[in-house]
Design a protein around this nucleic acid. Sequence first.
RNA 1: GGGCUAGUAGCUCAGCUGGAUAGAGCACCUCCCUUCUAAGGAGGCGGUCGCAGGUUCGAAUCCUGCCUGGCUCACCA
Length: 594
Amino acid sequence: MKDLEIKLIEPIVKAVKAIFGVDFPVNQINFQTTRKEFDGDITLVVFPVVRFSKKSPEQTAEDLGEYLVREVQFVEAYNVLKGFLNLVISDSYWLESYASAYQKSDYGFVKTDDSAPLTIVEYSSPNTNKPLHLGHIRNNLLGYSVAEIIKASGTRVKKVQIINDRGIHICKSMLAWKKFGQGETPESSGLKGDHLVGKYYVRFDQEYKKEISNLLVEGKTEEEAKKEAPILKEAQQMLRAWESKDEEVVDLWTRMNQWVYSGFDTTYTRLGVDFDANYYESETYLLGKKYVDIGLEKGVFYQKEDGSVWVDLTDEKLDHKLLLRGDGTAVYMTQDIGTAIQRHLDFDFNKMVYTVGNEQDYHFNVLFKVLSRLGYSWAKDCRHLSYGMVDLPSGKMKSREGTVVDADDLMEEMVTTAKSISEELGKLDGFDEEQLASVYETIGLGALKYFILKVDPKKRMVFNPSESIDFNGHTGPFIQYTHARICSLQRRAESSGIVLKPESELHPKEKELLKVILCYPDIIQEAAKDCSPAVLANYTYDLVKEYNQFYQQVPIFGTQSEDDKAFRIGLSSMVGKVISSSMCLLGITVPERM
RNA sequence: GGGCUAGUAGCUCAGCUGGAUAGAGCACCUCCCUUCUAAGGAGGCGGUCGCAGGUUCGAAUCCUGCCUGGCUCACCA
């Protein structure tokens, strides 16, 4: 569609010049796709021209329409409604565009080579004290998909995660395991490693709460009790031991983290996400300090009497922000400064995208400003892909309190539902066990992923576990189903179809489909620019709806003309290709039968 | 209190760089499987686009104020 607009701009400017004798600024040209109820393909909004033409909107539109039909070969007809000039574009224009799209192997993608710019996409970034939950699923799906979309838009991409493998929260599950675990391991318990560790994280919190209430009985205030609970102090002691590389603590830490990593691997694999590089907080948390010192020398930061280092961002309408504690230890911001700079050294990236929840909007705002004050010009090319939290109807999910929707459980549940629906419909005769399992997996995860990705990342979403995710309507399975149906057509067809339609006119539904197909490259660019898989998800839904109408209204094998038949088979397979391609960018696979 | 962000049908969401009568899905009610997969299609019901002003030929979309929700403003990460 963009192509078409570009081709029309010059004739329109010429037309205004020829008819009204004035130069019309190109940036004021305003197109929109013609609404379905009107005749035409593309509409020029003529109000902006009226100021130059000094005639009524209707007369201006008439004059322009008449000129364009006469001068532009592919403009076949026009009609005017109020200030809108609807142009009818010839079938041959659509068919030619379609033919060139059809022949491309990676239709819609911009090819990259080593000279293409590089974008780093960070996502997931889990803590190693508990398993992944629904919030992580949104993060992972978004990060993975945005990375794939950016790649398709013509940029090299590296996916990275930073693993938050150190800190007091890690020590909490370590301590609880040490005290109450009695040597339990994933092998001995049959529990997935991350779930086992998470169990002790919850256990810690229970013990901690118990101790607090005991202290309250002893007459402490709540604040005192929270600070003085023995188990917390023990955890803090453990953290200090870890930082001074106490062998026993480090061994336990290594051992338990390994359990978690192997658990995460299982979850990542099933979710279908991957990473090109991992960063570990335990290795990077000290990196930022030297840059803070440099900033201090440069005079862009300042030091307080107690030795703490700050940056003054009040002239940017932000506050003063701590960068280094009085005792010289790092805070979150220090680490992030260090990792960002390290990544630029590692990859020399052109852009970096952080997939992190919107609760950290302020943090990233500050981070980018600090980097830019340190003189890193690439700071302006860093972007926080901020997404809304996933809440339950009962409110926020809290790992410590066990009110989370676990990632592994949720995936399993979706696949089970897919299985029972499929069995009820009974269309999978002749599949062996392995094939069946794979189809259920595809559908169950497709439903889950589409459900999450179709909504605008920045919006908060509510997930109600008791109302299961739909498999009908605007859903992943709906799109997958259409793909399966197209595959079924192809199995039946002897030839793979042809592209051109020599004689007869395009059926209105064929034309609509062509137009939607031709938007695909623009949609990829738009989704990449906005970091929004939702744009792509909604586009795919529109395409599929359009195809289903075509499928219902237009006979394929039942048609008289062999040319029509071949054309429609080709058109169907093209739709199938676009579905499969766009769903792949969302991390969703599509089945050949379902 | 300051900052950021959202508020569109009973529910879940599109549309937001201003354009024609605000679109889908779910739910509810009708139809359509001797044409290619009914996880589909056709139709009906359902809206003061949070409220009030403003800018404009034209506002769900831009501006201002207000209301409501979420996040944030830590020597936590």
